[in-house]
Design a protein around this nucleic acid. Structure first.
Lengths: 203, 203
DNA sequence: CTCACAATGTGAATCTTTTCACACTTGAAA
DNA sequence: TTTCAAGTGTGAAAAGATTCACATTGTGAG
């Protein structure tokens, strides 16, 4: 059974706010409070948390610490190793961003084909020539990549990395990738995103 | 009646591939061909196109040019004016990216609070101090903004721009904004995105 | 100890989205 | 012409997601 994408997104979001709450010293939380912090309804939150191995109490709600643990357990969060391909401005910005703030994963290698981009360090992450991808991906067990390459090469690079064992791609190139359908692709190109928001600003 | 977000995303995607096809000299297309280019099923495409003012013919499918026009008509695409707030690496990268490749919209102004970021030009787009936002937004009729500011100020900036008339926000800060619910917010923070893909790479 | 309260967990109902399946249309070929 | 093949447009069915509503539970007050 494949779990719903929507639901996984929400749960990842709950985790983020719960971690923030834990840091702020909160120990317990009710579904309606979490609701106010996330835009999900209380009922939806309770439903999402149903198959976690923690349950809440009517009197004190959920124990923040335990709930985070259960979510990690549910999602399977051993600090995931991710690679990024394409070290232009966007690629560098994303690397800094993610490595500066994520709890649950790290970009551990960058790849490019331009010699001046290879063999540097960005945000604690070494950069390699794309032709070494397979070797390094296998050494590190990399299954997820972020794709920030130009549109015209995105399909080729995507094929190359999936041949090297990658199972999931976060695609920032504004193009539809065509890959075997056991590969998970999430499209996040910015142009479509802005167009969508512009549409809803007017409607 | 508010149109479905999913559907609007798909239609925006159809438009993108149709424009590419038109440039390549294609004049007609069948739903199953568009399907192969977009990952939507033929039935879904036909259903999405149902309420357009063009219809296809069994023998020649849809006329590419007309379909693009109908989609523009449906979505309401007068070259939308967008602003971006936060001109760090990510903000600059996005500005270059969008202004370099979008047909349907343009980032016309950037805003920041650091004096060294103000009064420059990035990707054909002038930058201003955030305190001038209201004035410029009103002059230009800006209703959509891209938010690439640090988490700690995102909520405040969001409130400020909505007070100045903004109706839709594309939010790259990893935080849940709380705004009046007639404001459309699309969250695209990269950390959640990578976490989601990492999850589905393993499942 | 008992009661009242407030919040959980969840079956059932509702609402939304996607897929199915087929009558209808068009143009080309015989 | 008439027939045939392939594709559209769309009701109806199915699948999926969200919300409702309530029985259940745990706690503190009296």
């Amino acid at each position: 059974m494949r779990r719903s994408e929507r639901k996984i997104e929400r749960i990842i979001n709950y985790r983020r706010v719960l971690i923030k709450l834990e840091r702020a010293g909160e120990t317990n939380i009710f579904s309606h409070q979490l609701s106010a912090l996330t835009n999900a309804t209380p009922a939806q939150i309770r439903r999402d948390l149903m198959e976690m191995d923690t349950s809440g109490s009517p009197a004190h709600g959920y124990v923040v610490k335990d709930l985070i643990k259960s979510i990690n357990n549910y999602i399977g969060a051993d600090k995931e190793q991710v690679a990024i391909i394409g070290l232009g401005n966007l690629g560098k910005a994303i690397t800094n961003y993610v490595n500066g703030s994520s709890e649950n994963l790290k970009i551990v290698a960058g790849f490019d084909i331009k010699s001046e981009k290879v063999n540097r360090v960005v945000a604690g992450c070494h950069s390699y020539h794309l032709q070494d991808f397979e070797k390094i991906a296998k050494e590190r067990g990399i299954k997820t990549v972020i794709l920030t390459v130009p549109v015209r090469v995105a399909q080729d690079v995507a094929e190359q990395v999936t041949k090297a064992g990658v199972r999931g791609i976060l695609n920032y190139a504004p193009v539809n990738l065509h890959l075997s359908d056991d590969i998970y692709v999430e499209n996040r190109d910015m142009i479509s995103a802005v167009e969508k928001v512009a549409y809803f600003s007017d409607h």
